[in-house]
Amino acid sequence: MDSKVKKRQLQQYIGFGILGACALFVVIILFIILYDIAVKGISTISWSFLSEPPRAGMTEGGILPAIIGTFFVTIITAVFSVPIGVGAAIYLSEYAQEGWLTRWIRASIRNLAGVPSIVYGLFGVALFVNTMSLGASILSAGLTLGLLTLPWIITTAEEAFQTVPKAYREGSLALGATPWQTIRRNVLPYAFPGILTGAILGISRAAGETAPILFTGVAFFLPQLPGSLTDQFMALPYHLYIMSTQHHAIEAVRPLAYGTALVLIILVFLLNLTAIILRYRLRKKYVR
């Protein structure tokens, strides 16, 4: 009896140890990735790296056009996906009744979230670049990324709507407000922090995507910044891709690639951090 208990205890000890090791291992993976890129990338980053275009066949200079290209394509993504996404979320959260249509919409959103990003790229090529004749452009790429981000925006926005108490809606309706008045005055303002957080997180993911923009508008190297929506553009993730695989002097430009990777990671983290801080601040402001 006693030895059985002891054996069980030992078993638990080992079991918990293994599970703890799993978790520790995940932490180590993250640490190694971040450490390797941070340590090797930090020496490349300087003001001129951030503020200058690439020079000398992209073996020198900075990444300014890539930063700006990513910035603009991300804005197009947001302008396209946030209104539609929030609209769809309002429909699902405030209007939809259980039925075949709602089930189909929800199933579609879940499946869209699982469609590979390269397939969005193919779709963007077929629809925006060719069928709609937008060409390979910052607009085509932004729209493609917008489609990719849409399911995420819908899901997070709907969650934000669900956190608004039912009493705010009923109270407003009981005063003779129409559903739309209720949503605009008594639901949207309180869901706003959550929607914003979700939108920024979704957009930070879009900013790091490469596959969807590969053929819809991103360019290897451009001497000047995009001047219109139909121009091609450079983007940070794609720049990292070519600097690490397609460049004629890969080993020589490795420091530049490390620097680009670090900037990309920092950008994504800053966006995430912004989302978290906004959520915290706006929550304090709106929901006391």
């Binding site: 978790a23 995940v26 932490v27 993976i29 993250l30 190694i32 990735i33 971040l34 390797d36 890129i37 090797k40 930070s204 993911r205 900013a207 790091g208 995507e209 490469t210 596959a211 993730p237 794609y238 990292l240 891709y241 690490s244 695989t245 490795r254 690639a257 490390y258 990777a261 990309l264 990671i265 994504v268 983290f269 995430n272």
Partner: peptide, 24 residues
């Protein structure tokens, strides 16, 4: 502590993970 670790891992762009595969 672990939850943000997992979230950060999820947030690393795939191209950066690929780059890590090449260089490390």
């Amino acid at each position: 502590t672990l939850k943000p670790v997992v979230e950060i891992l999820a947030g690393i762009p795939s191209v950066v993970v690929g780059f890590f595969g090449i260089v490390f």
